[in-house]
Amino acid sequence: MAESAIAHDHGVSHGAHASSTGLSNNKMGMWMFLGSECLLFGGLISTYMLYRGRVSSGPQPNNIFDIPFTSVSSFILLMSSLTMVLAVSSAQRKDDRNTNLWLTITALLGATFVGGQVYEFTAFYREGLGFTTSLFGSSFYSLTGFHGVHVSVGIIMLMALVGMNRNNRIPGDKAEVVELIGLYWHFVDIIWIIIFTLVYLIPS
């Protein structure tokens, strides 16, 4: 929850001296936040790994996953990392037009991914896997749901960033703000790389 707050607090402007390490406060804060998030997703992934085989009622994981569909949505999220890094590189060149363009495309790709997840959840629900059906259901929806919420928060941040950038209302170093949100976005992507392999591709 703190990420956008971190992204916009400016250490440089109130420290009376340059930082001891020469690094940006904001970026250091963001990396620490991501390090901390590893423990969060680690807990959720471990819970899922422990419980994925425990199906007292309802469908088994292997019968329900639609690998081709999820592969496509994973690919879309992976490509959104490319568009994000292009946005960061445009922002570093102070190319506002392309920054906004790539940020918008990233947000759209992210939205496609979340849309795919909503479709997947409804399909699973129709096939009889509810949140309360089994341990598999509870832990699967919690893990992927948490990831989906992270993606959605990322989309909101990207869109806010585009809006603020258009009106020139980003306080502080614009390229750094784009870079920080980029870090968050890539992190969400690498978490999905793990989830895609451990949850979808390796059968229980």
Binding site: L34, G35, C38, L39, G42
Partner: peptide
Amino acid sequence: LFYAGLLLA
């Protein structure tokens, strides 16, 4: 900072 969190996890 990042790998500390990751490896610890």
